[in-house]
Design a protein around this nucleic acid. Structure first.
Lengths: 150, 150
DNA sequence: TATTGTTATACTCTATAACTATA
DNA sequence: TATAGTTATAGAGTATAACAATA
């Protein structure tokens, strides 16, 4: 039987959409916004995210980047390649383990990261503006909860 | 409001992650879960979502499906093709407008949708379980707010 | 002229598996 | 044997632009 339960106070979601749909659509809307916001730099949201992770942990192993981004090692190769092609990050051999590779920001990458952070902050500000401080904090708490034992 | 400090570039949320990162990661986690949950049916989350939209509005024009899913018309063609190939939906000419095409569920599609709804409900229940009724409602409210004038 | 949907094309993000070079 | 990263390959999801048929 199709789900046609009358709107119960706790469960009703606006627009006949499930929590999952809402989450999916919100994330996609954000991604689209970010793509536009990042257009001047010719960089994708995923690449920008990776640049931030590298900047926060440099010099860092590729495997560590994968963990921070929660993506497969294979996927790191691609995005780091893209960033390296643009001269934003550089690979170097890990002195402690010759199997491993470390990545760091280049001077260009550091400059770009600074600019991107400003742009991202502005864009997030615009997107999350309507929420107000309190709802933002609540949203962060709830999402953090959902990711807890990731 | 006394709180006027603007979120500085690089605003951080718990775990060194921005609200945007949290949203992105949560949505991706859910998508991965859904992919696994839907595996027995050989159907993707996107396809399942489309099937639900069709089921809720059938018979409905392809353009309307695009609006409900908030995707480009071009993208509807692909996903409806996939569903039609599996015999879950059927295209038919719109009697009122010969440019338009309508889609409806097939009997097979209707059965599948019922099963999928149960599976989805179970999976969402598992994913959102740790939140509790109140946080779920709050999350729905906040996300709904972010999508408001979409 | 405007709208409906399709074809053609391409980009972003992600995964698994097999391989290499180390450890 | 196990780990770090790569190559090879694949698939999901989305977009723009040009077009044909119809309004």
């Amino acid at each position: 039987m199709t789900r046609r339960t009358p709107p119960s106070p706790g469960e009703r979601t606006p627009g006949e959409r499930t929590l999952g749909d809402l989450l999916t659509h919100t994330a996609r809307t954000l991604r689209r916004r970010s793509m536009s916001a990042l257009e001047p730099w010719g960089i994708s949201p995923h690449e920008a995210r990776t640049l931030r992770v590298v900047g926060r942990h440099e010099p860092t192993r590729l495997g560590a980047v994968a963990e921070h981004l929660r993506i497969a090692p294979r996927s790191v190769t691609g995005v780091v390649d893209a960033l390296e092609d643009r001269g934003l990050v550089a690979r170097e051999p890990d002195p402690d383990d010759r199997r491993a590779t470390r990545v760091s920001l280049t001077p260009t990458g550091r400059t770009a990261l600074g600019e991107l952070d400003v742009a991202r902050a502005a864009d997030h500000e615009a997107f999350f503006a309507r929420l107000g401080e309190r709802d933002r904090a609540t949203l962060a708490r709830i999402l953090g909860r959902l990711l807890e034992d990731d």
